[in-house]
């Protein structure tokens, strides 16, 4: 046993280096995940059952609302974020550093504070409407609607879309672009046939990084949605910290949400890879 361990130490230093991470993952990811699965299939009385899941059938509206809002915010983030990342990748020096700083700066402020600030901006008597009425324009009713939640999500998650895309575009070999230009591609063709396909991995991880926290958010929807159109995150929170303490149902909701997210990610990745191949060919 001991000799085996010694040999492993000698021949596989890599594993040893990974040990802290593996222990960390086991303690704080794998075990909690197993607990969630365990709780979802148990009742408060302790027996095995599918009751929690059959209850979920009635919650379609919450699932629909959460996935729709997360998808909408992801699309908006992509529409704003991709051109921004592309533009930033073409800048150099001070300009890019400044853009980067401006992008990251809000993230140094606590997310709760940022979201609260959006509440005072979007409120009926908030800063935005004060400005609009000062300019004698009609005021907007945004606060406590799904639109306000979408605004909050786009604001909070935009950097998570821009950064992975930027990283990938920056890494594209300049000579590939030059080759395309030499072969007579105009700017649009070069972008469509070379830059865009090569940047898809960044787009995919950007989508993941925005969509996943978007589906499960509850602070943003609680603060900007006014608790009127509750999302899955709020539903889960209610099961753990609400009037009824029901971690069994809460776990079941989390598990189903997780499974749907994983499936949609898997489908998207497959689609993305296919796309990449076709485009490269």
């Amino acid at each position: 046993m001991r000799r085996g361990l010694l040999r492993a130490l000698k021949t596989r230093p890599g594993r040893l280096l990974a040990a802290p991470y593996i222990v960390w993952m086991a303690l704080f990811t794998v075990i909690p995940l197993l607990l969630v699965v365990w709780f979802s299939f148990t009742t408060p009385e302790g027996g095995f059952s599918f009751d929690n899941f059959s209850q979920l059938l009635g919650y379609g509206a919450y699932f629909g609302r959460s996935f729709w809002l997360a998808a909408l915010s992801t699309v908006i983030c992509l529409v704003i974020g991709y051109p921004l990342a592309y533009a930033m990748s073409r800048e150099t020096g001070a300009m890019r550093n400044t853009a980067m700083l401006l992008l990251m700066l809000p993230m140094w402020i606590n997310m709760l504070l940022r979201t609260y600030a959006w509440m005072s901006i979007l409120e009926n008597r908030g800063l935005l409407n004060q400005l609009l009425s000062f300019l004698r324009l009609p005021t907007l009713h945004i606060i406590n609607t799904p639109a306000a939640v979408a605004v909050g999500m786009v604001y909070n998650y935009l950097p998570f879309m821009v950064l992975p895309i930027l990283t990938v575009i920056q890494k594209i070999d300049k000579s590939v672009v030059e080759a395309a230009q030499d072969l007579g591609g105009n700017q649009l063709t070069v972008f469509k046939r070379v830059v865009l396909p090569l940047s898809l991995p960044g787009v995919l991880s950007g989508i993941t990084m925005v969509f996943v926290p978007g589906v499960s958010t509850f602070i943003i929807s609680q603060t900007l949605g006014g608790g009127n159109s509750k999302m899955l995150g709020e539903l889960i929170e209610m099961q753990f910290l609400g009037g009824t303490y029901n971690p069994y149902l809460g776990s079941a909701i989390s598990l189903v949400m997780m499974v749907i997210v994983l499936i949609s990610m898997a489908v998207m990745n497959r689609f993305g890879e296919g796309e990449e191949e076709v485009m490269v060919l």
Binding site: T29, T208, M209, V212, P213, V215, S216, M258
Partner: peptide, 8 residues
């Protein structure tokens, strides 16, 4: 999976 776990 990680992000989901962390945020949920």
């Amino acid at each position: 999976a990680l992000t989901l776990l962390l945020t949920s």
